[in-house]
Nucleic acid binder design. Sequence first.
DNA 1: CTGAAAGCGCTAACAG
DNA 2: CTGTTAGCGCTTTCAG
Lengths: 339, 339
Amino acid sequence: MIEVARLADVGTMTVSRVLNSSVHVSAETARRVHEAIERLGYRPNEMARGLRGAKSKSIGLIVPSLTDPFFAICAHNVNAVAQSKGYSTIITTSNENPDTEFSEAEWMLQKHVEGLVLCPSVGRNSRFSDKIFQRIPIISFDRPLQGSRFSSVVVDNHVGAKLGTQHLIEHGHKRILFLGDRPDLFTIRTRHQGYRRALLDAGLKTGECLDCDSEDLVFKYVKTALAGKNPPTAFFSGNNRISRYLFRALRNLGVRVPTDIATVGFDDFDMADMMQPPLTVIRQPVEALGKTAAEALFNQFKAKAEDWPAKGSRITLKVELVLRSSCGCTQDAPKVIKP
Amino acid sequence: MIEVARLADVGTMTVSRVLNSSVHVSAETARRVHEAIERLGYRPNEMARGLRGAKSKSIGLIVPSLTDPFFAICAHNVNAVAQSKGYSTIITTSNENPDTEFSEAEWMLQKHVEGLVLCPSVGRNSRFSDKIFQRIPIISFDRPLQGSRFSSVVVDNHVGAKLGTQHLIEHGHKRILFLGDRPDLFTIRTRHQGYRRALLDAGLKTGECLDCDSEDLVFKYVKTALAGKNPPTAFFSGNNRISRYLFRALRNLGVRVPTDIATVGFDDFDMADMMQPPLTVIRQPVEALGKTAAEALFNQFKAKAEDWPAKGSRITLKVELVLRSSCGCTQDAPKVIKP
DNA sequence: CTGAAAGCGCTAACAG
DNA sequence: CTGTTAGCGCTTTCAG
């Protein structure tokens, strides 16, 4: 920077001002500075900028995994927003481990990210109330964060699951089972409640939220359930991973869908429409989830820390039922039902 | 830091030394420092550290998109390696736009990332030879980077495509068409060459690499090809996106696979085994691609800049043919063929 | 409109 | 083993 100043025959402050266009600089001087920058290929050191001004121009993003297309798409959209605002995204995965999540979050704070977007793992995430996390805005998505300070963006899990279950009931099903991977997850828990509500309202018997976190467990559980007396006639799967496991299990068991067993799953996924039969699902706005969360973060940047609401807000995005064939419907084009 | 030093009744240097365990500090002093750190909840400012020592403890990662599961999985594995080394990952997407890619890379350099892992977009990426990029290690994956300085990790595209095409030929197909999204992409181009090689070796006629970047184009192209005189009896699709588009097109056109048309695609994807019929694919080691690239980067960190090889190396990962049914094979379990 | 001085938080280099 | 000094590259503040 000193070299640029020397070459343009100005002070370093003038260079800084040209770079930040903070105060007006005479056109001629500005031109000389720009030329010098060009000639020297000078680029400001963001670390030094950050150190001085406490603005790192970066946000942190924590997701359980990028292997799951759901989170990958969310991450894509969070980054897209950050990019459009001239921010960089420091990303990391927690693998659903709250300890990893917490230490990664701390590490991001040390890097002075200006804000955090995360999909919190289940567990003691009350630690985010620590003093150090008071200084920056934090937005959670998909699952809310304990501690009311934080805003979150979620989808209408209860309504969606209820809608899907009701549809199964309309098809005449009376014994419907709910498959979830982790009953302690906010999303799964809320969807299970929606499922229960629908069944209860119809005067039917509800099932527990089955804890089948691996493909093997889904297989075993489904097999056991079907072999029992009074077997279910339909399954509701709690997320796209379980839906895929369920599809495999049913196929490998030689069960015909929807003739023998009908299914509805929460969360659409690529090629769900191309399965045999095409899968009926509750579609959630995955792109909007990431986008909205990031936008909420940048909105909070505008306000001063002392103006932050003591209670975080919650934004709930709408879902819809996409009728294909696994539920028992027969039609050429999928039909979309909004709650 | 000064506060910690004061509380522990030592100098700031001692605090620094305890933090970095660089020089030996007496056990008693260290204990007092740790206690002070604990009491004050002190965390070092990584920006200041970086400014002083030029070590940002972060790497940059540029992928075309996180919407594509292929890149998402690569990104996941790059980050996993970085995390294990105590580094953070600054991620960004280029959307296959070389200008975005370049400006994002420059931006990362200003942030003083210590290295860069990227899947380069097609275009004038010779700009990475700029002086500013000389100072840090850069590894590309999936596609090599112009300019021999850079190392890259790729898969055996030629061998894989040849193997898949040969398999189709063994099934008796004589008119096989190649579907790619962007013929200028290294991967697509090389796979097309492998396809040609197989056909040429068998004395059969080869087709151009069709440039169908959208689902619509795949549909139109397939429809046109099938309606022509002397229609193809098989398709080879250049990547998982095209494979999915092709599957949809064939289904919507009412074409039976593999009876009317056989297919083989490059790159396996989730649920490819659950399609009707299950898809025969060339499987590439996606996880290893990201992992290997990141590891290569960290290896280069160990060497001094002047020891970097003038010519980058190229690591080629093996692929395999996974025989399911879309090629015309009939078997219960998929069969894996290594070249 | 422009420049000089001071200092952000840390650590390399040198003393003690 | 521990403290002092200086300075990384920038911007805020205060003078011209």
